[in-house]
C-alpha cells in the first residue's frame, strides 16, 4: 500500500497510527513484528530515506506540512499520530 492509493484518509489518532504502521511495513526495512504504536522510535532505527519518504506521504495523505523533526521530537508512532491528528483537527 502506498499513499498514492489513498484519498485524504481519516485523521484520528488511531487511524493515523495504523496508517503509519502500514506504511513502515510496506517499506520492508523493519521487522513487521516490531512495528507497534508504542514501540520506541529510537529502537526502530528508521533509515533517513524512509523518514523523508514517510514525511512526504503524510503530507499527501493528510494535507499537512511535516518535516523529519516530528520523528525526533516524539518517542513513538502513537505520539506522532496524536500530533498529526491534532494538527489535522486544527486544520
Amino acid at each position: 500500500m502506498s499513499s498514492t492509493e489513498h484519498d485524504k484518509v481519516a485523521a484520528t489518532e488511531e487511524s493515523i497510527a495504523q496508517w503509519l504502521m502500514d506504511q513502515l511495513a510496506f517499506y520492508e526495512q523493519i521487522d513487521p513484528e516490531t512495528i507497534t504504536p508504542d514501540a520506541p522510535l529510537s529502537e526502530m532505527e528508521l533509515d533517513s530515506i524512509y523518514v523523508l519518504t514517510l514525511c512526504t506521504e503524510i503530507e499527501d495523505a493528510y494535507d499537512l506540512e511535516v518535516d523529519a523533526s516530528i520523528f525526533a521530537e516524539h518517542g513513538t508512532l502513537r505520539e506522532v499520530a496524536a500530533e498529526l491528528a491534532s494538527r489535522a483537527a486544527d486544520g
Binding site: T4, I49, Y50, T53, T56, E57
Partner: peptide, 12 residues
C-alpha cells in the same frame, strides 16, 4: 529500490 518512490524523489 527505495528511490523508486515518487514521494521521496519529490522531497529530495
Amino acid at each position: 529500490r527505495a528511490f523508486d518512490s515518487p514521494a521521496l524523489v519529490r522531497r529530495m
